[in-house]
Amino acid sequence: MTKEAALVVDSVDVFHGYAQAIHSLSLTVEKGVFATLLGPNGAGKSTLLRSIMGILPAKSGHISFEGKEITKRSPNQIAAGGIALVPEGRKIFQDQTVQENLLLGGYLIRRDATLLAETLDLVYTLFPILADRRQQNGGTLSGGEAQMLAVARALMVRPRMLLLDEPSLGLAPQIVMEIMEHLKRLNETQGLSILLVEQTAQLALQYSSHAFLVSNGRMIVDGKSDEMKTHPEVTRVYFGG
């Protein structure tokens, strides 16, 4: 595997109004790597993803993707550059059908009918349950189905990097596992780079190959997922002491 950097975050500061949420944080995700960002509630994980996606621009520091600076770009430009986000809370459009939600994800490739159809096929094959629900409104899906739709919708962007914000939130462990399996497969077969934000460390470490531990907006540890499973800092960050 080539060790080329996909996403580089370089000493970034992010603010929520006056409150600084992220303090000079740096990380690098290599191409084709499944990385996870761990940390307790309020550590700044979601904020970092929103900042990478351009929703909440960093106040200082640099973010680049595949060598191109994206720090001051707007979300739609960043999406066009090949990054897709599965947002916290899924954010499915309740009044639009499953198909329409997916077509929204395919907005950037709307002019290429063949590619669009191909990509739709791909996600329906990956998540057959969505194909059954094609004409149903987004609001009628169960939590697990909605989460799959959120992942499928992000895949419709045909991203080279996928950001996921706590996809396990409010879901039963079994469904979470199923989603993780899908992500793992995408990562292995398509070479999709993944940055997964998770609170439940064990699960994320089981599927990822690289992990970052953040707390209070600062990077604590950065290392291989296997090593992190037993790292003392993990329990310390979650339970103090």
Partner: peptide, 16 residues
């Protein structure tokens, strides 16, 4: 609470 196994699991494993 800090010593509880159930709490550790809830945070770290995500299980019930």
């Amino acid at each position: 609470v800090r010593a509880s196994k159930a709490v550790q699991d809830a945070y770290l494993v995500g299980g019930r």
